[in-house]
């Protein structure tokens, strides 16, 4: 780890004033950034600690929630309003990391966590995300955990967050503050596909800080689930995960359906093609398989991860069937 200067920001304005300087990074719970600094993947010269900024979780006038960027993952997962009105978000957070890590990790930091690609972590390996232009050792290497959707010839990494998969399904908005002022981004526009620039995980501008996440009201979220498939029962990143929310009309058709996938792409993957197949339809098994097929039409598996296509289909069928039948998401 490089020597680094550290300062705690009193408020967002002060943070942004300091955060724009070259070599500066915002520090949340440190559960990912500090690891990466120890691994010599990240080498900031100064850290601006933003844990003292808003961690409030408040109702919005329109019936949604406004979540401060410094809210801890544990606090968000356990918040009564989240558990009652957005249970998939609570479940997604609790499916991630460990209790200790969730107690430290912030919402803003979780959104910005970086891939778990093992070639990204090892500075003896080639990685375009870590060192642009170096090449990618994952494409022909161990790529069981890598992307099947939206990857490029430069990068096949996946985004590791569980929370973000739920936020993608919920049409969240991210509130940003930066040197050029404040703006909001739809959640789907925060993370990007790798294309030729896998070193850029997000569309955030230099010095921009996540100050809050806004959840719009969503009736369907009350009938929602998050299911994660992983190699051990806890403390493992998703092979594939699915956030789903549905609302049925009187005839048993899907008046609303939200689907997002984790572990399949460089970003939390909103499954809009599958949603389009299902919206207004009775979600029987044939229809659900059609939806999965539509979403996976562009999938291109690597040497080790073809199983993810099967897993995605199985999850879509099982989770939505359970939701339609009125069961909470099936878990082990």
């Amino acid at each position: 780890m490089n020597p680094v200067s550290y300062v705690r920001a009193a408020d967002a304005g002060a943070a942004v004033a300091m955060g724009a300087a070259a070599g500066t990074r915002y520090l949340g719970g440190g559960t990912n950034l500090v690891d990466l600094m120890r691994e010599n993947v990240e080498a900031p010269s100064s850290l601006v600690d933003v844990c003292g900024l808003s961690a409030a979780i408040e109702d919005t006038p329109e019936g949604g929630l406004l979540i401060g960027g410094a809210a801890r993952n544990s606090a968000l997962a356990g918040h009564p309003a989240v558990r009652a009105r957005f249970p998939l978000l609570s479940r997604a957070i609790l499916a991630g990391a460990s209790g200790q890590i969730r107690n430290m990790a912030t919402v803003g930091g979780n959104i910005l966590q970086r891939t778990r690609c093992t070639y990204f972590y090892d500075d003896a390996a080639r990685c375009n995300k870590r060192a642009p232009g170096a090449g990618c050792d994952a494409i022909d290497g161990f790529n069981r955990i890598h992307a099947i959707l939206g990857a490029s010839s430069a990068c096949v990494a996946t985004h590791p967050s569980d929370m973000c998969v739920a936020l993608a399904a919920l049409d969240a908005e991210v509130m940003l503050s930066g040197p050029e002022g404040e703006r909001r981004l739809p959640f789907e526009a925060v993370h990007r596909l790798p294309d030729g620039q896998p070193d850029r995980d997000t569309t955030l501008l230099p010095g921009e800080l996540i100050t809050a996440v806004r959840l719009p009201p969503l009736a369907a979220a009350r009938r929602s689930a998050y299911r994660k498939v992983r190699d051990r029962a806890s403390y493992a990143f998703a092979l594939v995960s699915l956030a789903a929310a549905v609302e049925l009309d009187a005839a048993g058709r899907l008046a609303e359906v939200r689907l997002a996938l984790g572990g399949v792409a460089h970003k939390p993957w909103r499954a809009r093609a599958a949603e389009a197949v299902l919206r207004g339809q009775v979600p029987d098994e044939i229809r659900l398989k059609e939806a999965a097929a539509a979403e996976l039409a562009q999938a291109s598996p690597l040497r080790d991860n073809g199983f993810k296509l099967v897993m995605v289909e199985r999850l879509i069928v099982a989770v939505l069937s359970d939701l339609v039948a009125g069961n909470a998401g099936a878990a082990a």
């Binding site: 093992t118 390996a125 050792d137 022909d140 161990f142 051990r232 029962a233 806890s234 403390y235």
Partner: peptide, 23 residues
């Protein structure tokens, strides 16, 4: 163990999966 480089690619307890309590 990457057969191209001989490098161990998961030298951490996050990626080398020993059983956790829930297992």
């Amino acid at each position: 163990f990457d057969p191209r480089s001989g490098r161990i690619m998961n030298p951490s307890l996050a990626e080398y999966h020993v059983p956790v309590h829930m297992d």
